[in-house]
Write a protein that binds this DNA or RNA. Sequence first.
DNA 1: AACAATATTGCACTCAGTGCGAGTTTACAA
DNA 2: TTGTAAACTCGCACTGAGTGCAATATTGTT
Lengths: 200, 200
Amino acid sequence: MNNSAQKPGLRERKRRETLQRITDTGLKLFLSQGYEETTLDAIAEASGISRRTFFYYFKSKEEILLAWQSGTGAAIAAAIQEQTADKAPIDAVLDAILSLASQFDANELVAIERLLRSTEELRASKHAKYVQQEGAVFEALCAKWPQARRRDSLRLIAMASMGALRLAVDRWVEEGTKRPLAKHLRETFESLKAELGRQS
Amino acid sequence: MNNSAQKPGLRERKRRETLQRITDTGLKLFLSQGYEETTLDAIAEASGISRRTFFYYFKSKEEILLAWQSGTGAAIAAAIQEQTADKAPIDAVLDAILSLASQFDANELVAIERLLRSTEELRASKHAKYVQQEGAVFEALCAKWPQARRRDSLRLIAMASMGALRLAVDRWVEEGTKRPLAKHLRETFESLKAELGRQS
DNA sequence: AACAATATTGCACTCAGTGCGAGTTTACAA
DNA sequence: TTGTAAACTCGCACTGAGTGCAATATTGTT
């Protein structure tokens, strides 16, 4: 019954607002007090909802942070689809990532990235996220190059690409985000391509 | 009285025994009841220790499982050091892994591997472990080939190797461990090398 | 207005993990 | 042998994440 075409819907609007309010205040509190030091009670209260309601929107505390980059895997996959098919897969991935990179707020991203390094639990979640994205990239590549003689090739490219992405973000954050992320991405992918085209 | 050369030590022996008893009974309970369904109280009681003492040996529940492959990162690094320097880095990593693979009990390994897939938390920890191992491999490679013109090359090899390891283990487990892990490792590394030597 | 679906909340509960402190066992040396 | 420091064990009380349940409120539909 509900046409997903056009319907702002009061309910849906409220939902998005609440969702946004939780992630906003959650991030703010994490940044000011630290992740583990911030309780769900504090987040719920600051968000104007009950503790119980929080779990209606998120299924865990760490999801607040992961939500910021929630659609990333699918977004990269979609961006890959939009790339022209004449370029090499590895370039398609890079260009797809670059096309998304501009949409993110750098300060926000680096803040989240730093939080994700603050505890073992969050670090682990971050890496799991990369693996999930690797899977999404791999499928997107398979969809775009279905005739690829060896899917292993695309699997490798997906792995290496996500590795490069991880490396680029790491360096970007460690360097204090002086140079733009896009620069790091280009550099890292450049040397990746150089190594890929070399005989070991 | 005690020779300073070798000291079994009653204390140290007890410690190892207790450690082993906890991991053994923990694994057994996880396998029979599931990871989340097994409480620390149950593990402690079955291990003949108090709940509080458990936390003297492990700092979290998941550490019981991670302990089984605790030294893996360092072990791979050490095995890389022992490889002859005439082979390519990627082959050194493969051979290092192969030299270790035989030391593990296949049934035990696959059981643990399956448990590590059973919950999101454990999956994340597993991936974090791979990243940690990647770092260890990278450092080992840097130590063995210090003159490498580009460290990026070794970084890539470390990333790709661990990716191949992950892939090989995945397929091995998914195939129901019919063929030996070494076979999968060789195959996966083989196609990895083939792709590395190809112009994208 | 009636009715269904979705959203909000409180309460009580389980369980992982920590801080503290007291008691026990082992190592080691006077 | 005895004393003692260090390592180990344990109980207790506590915090905080996450869940099940069931009651109430809000929104969408007819």
